[in-house]
Design a protein around this nucleic acid. Sequence first.
DNA 1: TATGAATGAGGTTTCATTCAT
DNA 2: AATGAATGAAACCTCATTCAT
Lengths: 188, 188, 188, 188
Amino acid sequence: MSKQEQIQATALRLFVANGFHGTPTAKIAAEAGVANGTLFYHYKTKDELVAAVYNKIKDEQACNVQAIINRDDFITTKFRNVFVHSVNWALKNRDKFYYIQQFNFSPHLAQLSPEKLELHIVGYAEFIAEGIRKKLLRQQPVNLIISMFNGHVYGIYQYITAANFDSAEEEKIINDGYEMLWDMLKYM
Amino acid sequence: MSKQEQIQATALRLFVANGFHGTPTAKIAAEAGVANGTLFYHYKTKDELVAAVYNKIKDEQACNVQAIINRDDFITTKFRNVFVHSVNWALKNRDKFYYIQQFNFSPHLAQLSPEKLELHIVGYAEFIAEGIRKKLLRQQPVNLIISMFNGHVYGIYQYITAANFDSAEEEKIINDGYEMLWDMLKYM
Amino acid sequence: MSKQEQIQATALRLFVANGFHGTPTAKIAAEAGVANGTLFYHYKTKDELVAAVYNKIKDEQACNVQAIINRDDFITTKFRNVFVHSVNWALKNRDKFYYIQQFNFSPHLAQLSPEKLELHIVGYAEFIAEGIRKKLLRQQPVNLIISMFNGHVYGIYQYITAANFDSAEEEKIINDGYEMLWDMLKYM
Amino acid sequence: MSKQEQIQATALRLFVANGFHGTPTAKIAAEAGVANGTLFYHYKTKDELVAAVYNKIKDEQACNVQAIINRDDFITTKFRNVFVHSVNWALKNRDKFYYIQQFNFSPHLAQLSPEKLELHIVGYAEFIAEGIRKKLLRQQPVNLIISMFNGHVYGIYQYITAANFDSAEEEKIINDGYEMLWDMLKYM
DNA sequence: TATGAATGAGGTTTCATTCAT
DNA sequence: AATGAATGAAACCTCATTCAT
C-alpha cells in the first residue's frame, strides 16, 4: 500500500468518524504513518484530499454498477441486480456510503466540476432509458426514475442500519424492498 | 425579540447560508447586534448553538406535519397531504432542509439525546401504524414504511432541485411522485 | 451565616482548591448561593475579595496568638504555648494556612499596605523582645527570632502534612520540634 | 540556541518577572522571536511550559547542591556548605526562588509526577542519613531533619529579603543563622 | 441589598500550509 | 519523494466587571 493510498484510507476513516472539520491534516498524516508535509506533497490542499477520496469511492461504485449493467441479462434482471447490489455495497461499505452523503451535503460538492459529476450516472442512464423505451418502466423522465431509485436505496439503507438485523432478515428486507421499488417503477 | 432569540435567528440564517464551520461565532454575534460574550452566556458552546438551531428546525417541521395529521381527514388523504406538504416544505425551505442533512451527516447528530430524536417521528408513526392495521398500507414494519416514505421525499427533492422547473411542472412532478409512492406502499 | 460570610468561606475553599486564577468569581458566587452581581456589591473587585479573605485569616490567627500571649504565664511558657498552638492551628486549618502561603507568594501581597502587615506581628514582637532583654532568648534581632520561629512552624507543618501520622505521633513530633526550636533560640 | 531553548529561556525570564498568570503566551513567543504557534508546537499547553520551567530551576538547584555534597568534605562541613549555599543561591536568584514558591503553592504542583518530585531531594537524604547514623546529627527521622533544614533556609531568606542589608551584614546573618541551625540539629 | 443579563478585551489553542533540508 | 519544524491568522471561549431593575 503506497503512502498515497495510506493517506486516503486513513482520511476516509477519520473523516467518517469525526467529520471533515473535526479531522486535522496532522492527525491524518500521523495515523497514516507519514510526515505532515508528505500529505501536502501529494495533495495541494486539504480540500483536494477530500475530493480525491470522494472521487475514488464514486469511481469504485460506478465500476461495480457498470460491471452488472454490462452483463448480458434481460433488462428487468439488470434492474433488480443493480438495486440489490447497490444496497449490499452500501451495507458492506458503510463508511464509504456515509462519506458520500457527508460530502454531498457540504460546500465541497459545489466545487466539483459538473462534468465529473455527470460521469457517475452515465452508465445508469442508458439502460434505464432503454427500460422506459421498451415499456418495462414507467413513462417518466430518466432522471426522475434514477432519483426515485436512489431515494429507495437510501431509505432501505437507513432502515437496516438503524436496527440490528441478522443476515437472513437483511436479505428478506432487501427482497421486500425490491418488490416495493418494482411496484413503484414498473410499467402498468 | 430577546437577545437570545436574536442570536438563534441570526445563527440559523448564517448556518444555512455558510454551514456551521463557515460561520464564526464572532460573526453571529456581530450580525445579531450583541457582544461576543453574550452568545456564550446563552449557549455554553458553539456546538450547543448548532444543536439548538437544529432542534428548532426539526420542531418547526414536526409541528407542521402534526397539524396535517391532526386534521380530521381520512387516512389515505392524510398520507397524501403529509407527503405533498413534506416535499413542498423542503422546496420552500431549501436552506433549512440542507442544514438538516448537513447536521445528520456530522458528528453533531451523535451528541443529541436519543429521546429528543424519537420525538420527531412520534406523530408519523401512529397514523402509519393505523394505516397498516386497517389494511390500507402494505403489511410491513412501520419503520420500514417511514424509511421508504422519507427516501421518496428525498428522491423527489433531489430531482426537482437538480433542475429548474417552473411551479406548474413542480406540481405535476409532486403529483406523479405521490402516485408512485402510493403504488409502492398501498395494500394490495 | 450572612451572604458576605458565605462568599468569603466559599472563596477560601475554591481558592485553595484551584488557585486564585483558577477560580472565577462566577463560580464563587454560584457555589455560595448568591448572584454574580452580589459578590461585586460586597467587594469592589476580585482582588479586594482575595485580600479580605487574607486579612480575616490573619486577624483570626493574631487574635488566637494574642490570647495566649495575654495569659499570665512565664515567658518561656508563653513561648512554648505560642509554638504549640501555632502548629496545631495550622494543622487544624490547613486550608487557611495554605491560603496564607499562596497569598504571600503572589502579587497580591505587594498590594497590601505595610502598616496592615505590621499589625499582624505586633503582639509577637513585644514578648519576644522581652525574652531577649531578660536573657532567656538569644541575643539576636527580634525579627530574626520571629523569622526563625515561623520557619520552624512551617517546617514542622510540612513534615506532618507530607505523611499520615496519628494524633499521638503528631503530638510527639510537635514536642520534639519544640525542643529543637528551643535549643536553637534559648540563651546560652 | 534552538527555538525551543529560546522559548524556555524567555518563559523563565517572564514568568519569574510577572508570574505565570501575568505572562501571556503571546508575549513569550514575541520576546523569544518566534511565532505564536511555535510555542505550542514545542509545548502542548501553557501548563506544560510552566512545569518545564519549574523543572529546569529545580534541576539547576539540585545540581548545585549535589556538587557540594559530592565534594570530599567531612559531613559537618558538607552540612554547613549546603546551608550557606542554599541561602546564597536563594538570595542571588530571588526571582527563581520566588517562582518555585509560587509554583509550590499552586495547583500546578499536584500535576507533577511524584517520582519527578522525589528526585529533587534524593541527594540530600543520603548524606543527612549518614550524619544521623554517625551521631553527628540528632536522632530523628531524616525527613524531619530535612524539613527543619528547609524551614530554616526559608526563615533566613524571609528575614534578609524583608530588610535591606549590605553584604557584610548578610554574611553575618547567614553565619549566625547557621549556628542556630546547628544548635538545633547537632547530636548532643 | 440583591440580581443576572450583558459586555468585550484578552487569553489559549488549533491548524492548514510552507519551506529548507 | 519525503520530512517536520515553523508559521500566523483566526477560532473558540473565559471572565472580571457593569448596570438597569
